[in-house]
């Protein structure tokens, strides 16, 4: 298994994960109220669980309904 074989996966995966992370962090920072928890908690959850589960949790449980 050399690195070249994995590259076609790694690059899009990294792009997708960072897009998700960026959307979530932007959303957290531009909103002051959440359904549950506070800003620090959600930033930690999103960054620690950045391989998709963190942002999903935030958008399901943390995001306030507009």
């Amino acid at each position: 298994m050399n690195i070249k074989e994995v590259l076609p996966f790694i690059i899009p995966l990294i792009i997708a994960e960072f897009t998700l992370l960026a959307i979530s962090i932007w959303h957290i920072l531009t909103h002051n109220h959440y359904k549950r928890g506070n800003r620090i908690l959600w930033l930690i959850v999103v960054i620690v669980g950045m391989e998709f589960i963190g942002p999903v949790l935030y958008f399901l449980l943390g995001k306030e309904d507009v």
């Binding site: 996966f9 995966l13 997708a16 897009t19 998700l20 959307i23 999903v56 507009v66």
Partner: peptide, 19 residues
């Protein structure tokens, strides 16, 4: 679009597709 739902879903489904 405004709630970001579409963006999240698109990224998520692409992630699943790559995985």
């Amino acid at each position: 679009i405004r709630t970001g739902r579409l963006a999240i879903l698109l990224v998520l489904f692409s992630l699943f597709g790559i995985m």
